[in-house]
Design a protein around this nucleic acid. Sequence first.
RNA 1: GUCUCCAUCGUCUAGGGGUUAGGACACCGGGUUUUCAUCCCGGCAACGGGGGUUCGAUUCCCCCUGGAGAUGCCA
Length: 491
Amino acid sequence: MSVRVRYAPSPTGLQHIGGVRTALFNYFYARSQGGKFILRIEDTDRERYNDESLQDLYDTLEWLGVQWDEGPDKGDFGPYVQSERFAIYQDYAEKLLKDGKAYYCFCTSERLDAVREEQKKNKSKVQGYDRHCRDLDPAEALKRKEAGEPCVIRLKVPMEGKTTFHDEIMGDITRKNSDVSPDPVIVKTDGFPTYHLANVIDDHLMEITHIMRAQEWIPSGPLHVLLYEAFGWEPPKYCHLPLVMGKDGSKLSKRHGATSLKDFRTGGYLPEAIINYITLLGWSFDDSREFFTKEDLEQLFSLEKLSKSPAVFDYKKLEWFNGQYIRQRDPESLKALLLPELQKDGVVSDPVTEEEMAVFDGAFPLIRERLKLTTDVSEMIRFLFKDIDSYETADAVPKKMELKDIPAILDSCSALLEGFEARSDEENEKIFFDKAEELGIKMGQILQPLRVAITGTRISPPLFESIRLLGVSKAAWRIKALSEQIQKETA
RNA sequence: GUCUCCAUCGUCUAGGGGUUAGGACACCGGGUUUUCAUCCCGGCAACGGGGGUUCGAUUCCCCCUGGAGAUGCCA
């Protein structure tokens, strides 16, 4: 039987690292097996549902280049949006009711809270619902429901025996039925199914063969199997993925840093870096290879190489990957990514002028190998486009020198600018080297003040090329400006 | 509390009854270099503890410890 897997997010928030990894693994598995990847929208939580989350889901998958074979817009097993499948769940819930596998429950949330409170206070061994309505007479219950009394439908979980399901990574997982959540709600007061019901029905109806989801779902595995059994269906294969953790070892969340893909999308990251790094969270290929394109993974991904233990998300390594992929990008496509950043930060105009473009083209090779994030570009070359308002004069002082020594050095630099553009970088280097020797200082000591004058910071792209891009006259003006500011400060 | 899962360098991981326990990030040195970065070279650094099984366990089994997850009319 050919593989059919799904990613079934709930549009109640932005797509995050964990969810995206689940999507990717499902997608890669489908591709590697020649199977189908299905996108299903699980929007049964009407309270938390919002359109932005749904849009974010689509934006994220598009950005990653993940395409589904079946989903809201296509496929023969639809609809693929759960809120459009309301009637289906109703029918199946009714069937469970009729077979005595489920029952109406009229307990109010106040009562439920009280029960929970009581259990906590008594440190009770049993927890959760006390099955108060389990043995209500079905005919009686139906009457009450039809009289308009609010109610939910609960699954009648067997109180004896145990339930086992097989996990492709973990092996057999067994749980006593008495430890399974006591009679969970499967249809809410508003008539919508809960996750458990909708998920099981849809996976069965859509002929899903493998359920790949995060390990946080392991505890409800037996419950789902019970549900399949109640319907008389064969459960699919399970594959629970290790959790993604923050540095402190708890489930990755906002307090650990950026977690939504949107943050990464807009934060200077490349999709190829994200895909590569995230896939390595819980999956590996061999003892050394760690670079994988999406296309590679569509071939190489396998369940066997999945790990059991949780993985800590390492922002540093992601950044490293991003830098690697930035350098691998072909120049034109990288420029197309950088230009909008410069425009967003007001470094160049929108639309960009010809002169600006010329400077940017010139600066491009200098910054390409220095970027970790595309968003770093503005800081790096702002000085080529914008004047420097005021200097941090202390930056201009090399080791073993004092602020008052600097203007003299700057003045000698000024003098060397004469004919700068006509000379090669090697020739200029020689000239500055000779000058340093003449002043009895090191090359670095003469270049540091100059660098600060030209770029405004101690750290910059290569100096001579920067001067060339900026133009000698502007350079001379900046040297003068810095010198004057220092003299004012030291006066 | 209860249930379930997990356990190799700080992090991601490879490996597997006998290995100098491998790679990568990070970190620290060194080289290239006008700063930074890139690049190259080198270094630091791990099998949680205790019992078995075995000629031999980091590897297999059990216990402990530790960590995590779940205990919702959220998914």
